[in-house]
Simulated scan of single mutants.
Amino acid sequence: MSAVVDPAPAGLRARIADALWRRPGLTIFLLLTPPALWLGIVYLGSLFALLLQSFYSIDEFSGMIVREFTLKSYRELFTPANIDIIIRTVVMASLVTVAAALVGFPIAYFAARYARGRWKALFYLGVMLPLWSSYLVKIYAWKLILAKEGILGWLFETLHLSWLLEAYLSLPVLGGNSLSVSWTGTFLVFLYVWLPFMVLPTQAALERVPVSFLEASSDLGARPAQTFRHVLLPLALPGVVAGSIFTFSLTLGDYIIPQIIGTSRFFLGQAVYSYQGTAGNIPLAAAFTVVPIVIMGFYLWFAKRMGAFDAL
């Protein structure tokens, strides 16, 4: 005796599918509502709560948060010591971004123009491989490399160039007891960790530059430097700016690298971590977090005008 299958569920599914097919706006609404709620409640809600906290203050005697509207935290933010933290972080992020563009552009150009087949696969593997390893493992590995007894120190000693390294470490701002506790060491590790985020968008932008444009420029008598300046660079610039969004923002907010490698001078991320955790001054920590949000807002506006979002 065969079992009787109730056709109601299949009929209900068919009616729902038919209703969604006839109303594409309803389909889009149902698909976008869950991520929109997540974005609105979790992401934008947390940003609003953060902004609200920055307008509170902390009682200096009890250490309790006074939930009254005030600009005290922002006045503290503009003290010379805190301004120094902001300038130091922005300068580091800018230098890392420029260096990543200078180092990453030739790599991306070679991959876009000359790498084919197996070599292109090796290129992607070489660029992406550092991203697959542990973040902390990479930083501590660099700490060992840059230490006075590390590989780099051994290499300088083997080449009888220890005097050159010592001379560099004696420089007032850039040097230190060793590269692992210097501003230079922090810069090198930032550059290593975030370089893939510059190479990949630049390589994608360079692949979209037609070879015929470069050939036409050469046929018209332009020298290689002129072709690069007037043809290749303007067309690839959106990819470079897109990569700079990642390198600049990631450097701006990172607090682990300067905490492990570098001097004792704070960066923005370390200041937020210290004021929120050790000092318990949540309003000032919230005011500090508003700084990179404002900076990145202007940076993204500039990047959009440069067409960077087309290369993401």
Rank of each mutant, 00 (worst) to 15 (best):
G185M: 04
L155C: 15
A100R: 02
R116D: 13
V137W: 01
P172I: 07
Q203E: 13
G117C: 12
A99K: 00
L152D: 08
T184H: 02
M198H: 00
W142C: 00
S212E: 15
A108W: 00
Y109L: 13
A216E: 10
E215V: 13
L188D: 01
A167Y: 10
A101K: 04
K148V: 03
F187T: 10
A204I: 08
A121K: 10
L174P: 11
F105H: 09
K138T: 06
G150Q: 04
F105A: 12
V189H: 01
L122R: 12
P106M: 05
S218G: 11
E166G: 12
F190D: 00
I151V: 14
W119L: 14
A167H: 11
R113W: 12
V91T: 12
L155A: 15
A108G: 10
S162C: 08
S178V: 05
L125W: 09
A115R: 12
L146W: 00
L136S: 02
I139D: 00
L144R: 12
P196E: 05
T158A: 08
S182A: 07
E149L: 11
V199H: 06
A216H: 08
L122T: 12
V173S: 01
V103P: 07
Y168C: 11
A167T: 07
L200S: 06
K120A: 11
A112I: 01
E166L: 13
V211I: 15
K120P: 15
T97I: 04
V199S: 04
K138I: 07
K138R: 14
K120M: 09
S170A: 11
G221N: 09
S133A: 15
L102A: 09
S180I: 07
S218V: 13
Y135R: 03
A121H: 10
A167D: 14
L146G: 01
V199D: 04
M128N: 14
W163E: 14
M198Y: 03
V189T: 04
L136I: 06
F197E: 05
Y192M: 04
A93T: 02
W142P: 02
G104T: 01
G185S: 03
L131H: 08
V173I: 10
L220R: 05
S217T: 12
T97N: 03
E207Q: 06
W183V: 12
V96D: 02
F187M: 03
S182I: 06
S162T: 04
I139P: 00
